[in-house]
Design a protein around this nucleic acid. Sequence first.
DNA 1: AGGACGCCCTGTTCGC
DNA 2: TGCGAACAGGGCGTCC
Length: 260
Amino acid sequence: MPELPDVEVFRQYVEENSIGCKVAAVHAPLTGILKDTSPQALGRSLGGLELTATRRHGKYLAIFAGGKGCLVLHFGMTGFLQHLQKKQQEPQHVRLRLDFQDGQALVYDCSRKLGSVRWQRSFPAFLQRKGLGPDALEASQHEFFSLMHKRKGSVKTALMRQQVLAGIGNVYSDEILFKARMHPRTRLAQLASESLQKLHSIMHTVLQTAIDKGAAPEQFPRSWLLRAMSEDKGCPICGGEIVRENIGGRNAHLCPMCQN
DNA sequence: AGGACGCCCTGTTCGC
DNA sequence: TGCGAACAGGGCGTCC
């Protein structure tokens, strides 16, 4: 479930491995993940171009090419990237492959096809059309406050709404609310401004720490809910059972003793 | 405005 | 043992 930290790790990976490579051929079989373009058009857009830079906003990753535009990737639930060496075997559900001139390749694999691939002239214009909020890692405390303050719904729903704040999904909202010792159904209207400030600070720490640990739950601090869940353990604070509650059609994980 | 729900999609897990 | 149902959830659309 790639969320902001996972996508940031993908971005760094592309930056280290694939930037500077020149696209010789594009393979993009016709599946639902190709949006606003066709396999042929994508090939014409990208063919011959050098990958020059990367950028991330929320859960979207842009890979810029030849000053002409950018590949905009969304990873849905199961998407990931892999830079292949010459003759290295590719993963099982490749939906897009960029073959480079030196024989290496960059592949986008997405088994459940809930991700998307686009070619865009302008990344900012794309983000604006989507109506995305500011990136969760870049939003200042002031910005966070003014976004949350005017909302009335539950805190988890707001954190996860990409049009409010871009980048947080079900997994990391669970961690943020656990660290804030806040029940996910808590109404924003009943939160004092100090609580919102604290929430912003926790959000920032959780996202940055997850990035620093390579978005790998087994590397997260032992005090984290996500680490405990990856090891099938109880609450890191009280040892109690972690429960699931359906909120907005998603399963929230929480400790009913520590979050209220 | 916000929440509840359904749809897409398929690998994995669960129950009979 | 084997098969089918249920489940997972990001984004989007619909309805109330």
